[in-house]
Design a protein around this nucleic acid. Structure first.
Length: 287
DNA sequence: CTTTCAGCCTGGGCGC
DNA sequence: TGCGCCCAGGCTGAAA
């Protein structure tokens, strides 16, 4: 599902609901997620934040810390259920998740891969495609050395230039998708960022002029922060846990707009495939 | 080292 | 209705 702005949105909306709660237990029903540490009981949730494209939970018990990184991959979601039994939720008209997930008359519960149990509420890890992952740490995980978060204030042009130099031979699109260099950009925002900087996604990084590099650099936090302000992009399988939706889909300029007219020059938007993934761009505006 | 590409999963949507 | 095919906000690892 999600790229940096969607994961940031999930963490921001989830934190006020569960920070300070004690997680009585965790039931993992999908073996692919692995087991929680032994005796994972009665841990206090101290924080919910984002690390790259992952949601980072910080727990503690008796001054011992424990961390969980949840990668949502393509279809993972964290759904907070305040108070109601699942059966009540399913039967309820106000239970909008159903309509939004658009899993036909399927039963919803079979896609719940893990459940965090609180005193009077629950948090579900819901993941249709089962690509999501759990990783447990006893020390706070960080991005690897040399990897930057593009909305962090320490992401400056100098850093970006160094990363671009390491990626001289990559296309702009593939450079933007390198998680071990800039962490957080995915398939939607890679196209949007390239459009915003007027650079064709197939351009080789080493051929970019300094002004082009600068434009590309500026577009990255600009696009990502605007998406965060709008709670990310909502498609059929991304939904905030509280049934409100992200709005950035209304601001997309090229992603998914094949043959629609470019917002700037009216030229039909092109779709190509790079590294087995769709790329969208305006053949007129982007050179 | 690079690039390519099947694979991991499930379900929606479309054409026939 | 149903079947076969293509598509999907990600990423890994084997093969070339």
């Amino acid at each position: 599902m999600p790229e940096l702005p969607e994961v940031e949105t999930v963490a921001r909306h989830l934190a006020p609901k569960i920070v300070g709660k004690t997680c009585g237990s965790l039931i993992v029903s999908d073996i692919k997620l692995g087991n929680p540490p032994q005796n994972f009981k009665n841990y206090l949730i101290n924080d919910v934040s984002r690390l790259g494209k992952e949601v980072l939970f910080q727990f503690s018990k008796n001054s011992k810390e424990l961390y969980l990184l949840v990668h949502l991959r393509m279809s993972g979601r964290l759904l907070f259920n305040q108070g109601n039994s699942f059966e009540e939720l399913e039967a309820s008209d106000s239970y909008l998740e159903h309509k939004i997930i658009r899993i036909k008359s399927d039963n919803f519960s079979k896609h719940i891969r893990a459940t965090f149990k609180f005193k009077d509420s629950e948090l579900y890890f819901f993941d249709v495609r089962r690509f999501g992952t759990f990783k447990w740490h006893t020390k706070r995980p960080t991005l690897p050395e040399g990897t930057v978060d593009p909305v962090n204030k320490n992401f400056d042009f100098e850093t970006f230039t160094e990363l671009a130099n390491k990626s001289k031979n990559l296309s702009v699109k593939n450079f933007l998708l390198r998680q071990d260099r800039i962490s957080g950009i995915g398939n939607i925002y890679a196209s949007e960022i390239a459009f915003s900087s007027r650079i064709r996604p197939t351009r080789i990084v080493g051929t970019l002029s300094k002004p082009e590099l600068k434009k590309l650099f500026k577009s990255i936090p600009s696009i990502l922060n605007k998406a965060i302000l709008n709670n990310g992009t909502t498609f059929s399988d991304f939904q905030l846990d509280d049934s409100s939706t992200g709005n950035y889909q209304n601001f997309l300029k090229v992603y998914g707009k094949t043959n629609e007219n470019c917002k700037i020059c009216k030229t039909p938007i092109s779709k190509i495939v790079q590294n087995q993934r769709s790329t969208f761009f305006c053949p007129q505006c982007q050179r």
